[in-house]
Simulated assay, not measured.
Amino acid sequence: MTSRRQFLFSFPAYALSAQYFAPRFHRKKPVPPPPTRVFIGTDTARGVSKGIYQADFNSRTGQLTVPVLAVDTARPSYLALSPLRNGRRSLYAVNAVPDPSATVTTFDLDQRTGILTRKSRVTSAGAGPAYVSVDSTGNCAFVANYVGGTIASYRIEPDGTLSKPVSTFNYREPRFGKHGPVPKRQDGPHPHSVVVSPDDRFLIVNDLGNDALSVFLIDTATGRLTPSDPLLTSVRAGSGPRHIAFHPNGRWVYLINELDSTIDHLLWTATHSLKHPQAFLVHTNATVKTIAAGFPADKNTAAEVMISPDGNFLYASNRGEDTLVVFSIQDDGSLKEIQRIGCGGRTPRHFTFDPTFDWILCGNQDSASITVFRRDQGNGKLAGPTQTIPVDSPLFTLFA
């Protein structure tokens, strides 16, 4: 039996022998992540950009290549991806033209080459589509038509294309509420986003025109929507609900309001009943401003909201103040501002995390650029912009 003293005296010799033989057992150095493909939807109505552009982003260095045209298509203001099937995915783009002929286009995405091939085009069931989403099963897709005041659901066919609209709802119906008090922006209903709940059972619609959120039950087999009971959650008059972000806990929902530049903290509740499923949102009366105290509210519109995957930080963008704002999420779900940083351009309509969550790409619509920011995952703060890349009128960025 080896005594403690004998072990301690023999340890240096053991350590030396381990050091001598260690090179045989050295692990291979980790391979840097390859460049990640980025698709950029642009505003073709301005006469410069032509459709969806493609660039490569290196998550190790934070470098974005200069975007090149991937495919021409009319005003692809919002993009969504289907889940991977047999090595291929579909990319969906709303064609946000402000008339009833607006469409949703399906592209086949070759995962190896990144080539987009147009496969089909279907009606968006309303003018000016602003948002498209897909459930995690890849069975259903949803569109919000901002100008037309409607939403639509679709079944995703085996080849990735969209069916004709399965369900459509006209938000001019009285059950969806009445328009808000801002005449220039709330002259009628304006559904701005259609977000699928984390369990794929419900759809939440933000209506900027009617200052309300509505909830629908999703039939994932058919794509059919059924209004939930209660249907509406009203928010402050004139706030203009735009987008929401679910916290990773599945219980907290953060609503960014475009017109009064605020973020509201809501609680999400859903029953587990298979026979009579219900879901609704409750306002916690916790609201924060996205703009600085001295900035004129009428000179800004809030745009995007996202939450880090660890649930500790929330990010928002301001068009007018032209900033990205970082909030820490407290134990009770309330928000505390920790940073306000210039976006490096004008009109940051959309931003997104890269797959490592070490970087944020921010599309600056009115300065024809995408700016790159490094993100500290420990404290949530941003540094940059570390790079500015030219691209005309970026509306949306999607990693694929």
Rank of each mutant, 00 (worst) to 15 (best):
D366H: 15
A316Y: 02
R319W: 11
G363W: 01
R346H: 02
M306P: 00
A316P: 02
Q339E: 15
S308D: 15
P309G: 06
V326I: 14
T352E: 12
I341Y: 06
G363S: 12
G320I: 13
F313I: 06
L324N: 00
L324F: 00
D354Y: 12
I360D: 00
R349S: 10
D354G: 05
P309W: 01
I307T: 09
Q365H: 15
E321G: 14
S328G: 04
A316K: 05
I341K: 01
V325R: 13
V325F: 08
I341S: 07
A316R: 05
S317H: 06
L335W: 03
Q330A: 14
L361H: 01
F353W: 08
F351H: 05
F353T: 06
N312Q: 15
G342C: 09
F327H: 08
K336R: 15
W359H: 14
I360Q: 02
V326D: 09
Q339A: 11
L335D: 01
D310P: 04
P309Q: 10
S308K: 10
D366R: 14
P309F: 02
F327N: 04
T352A: 13
V325Q: 06
T352C: 14
L314W: 04
S308R: 12
H350V: 01
T352W: 08
N312E: 13
Q365A: 06
G345P: 01
T323A: 11
S367R: 06
L335Y: 07
D354C: 13
S328Y: 00
P355E: 06
D322N: 15
D310G: 05
S317T: 13
V305F: 02
R349V: 04
M306Q: 15
G345E: 00
T347C: 09
G311N: 10
T352Y: 05
P309L: 03
C362P: 01
G311W: 09
D354I: 09
D358E: 14
G333T: 03
F357K: 09
G311I: 12
G363M: 03
D358T: 12
I307L: 07
D331T: 15
L361P: 01
Q365L: 15
T347V: 13
F327G: 02
R349C: 06
F351K: 00
R349M: 12
E321W: 10
F351G: 01
F313M: 07
K336F: 09
Q365E: 14
S367D: 12
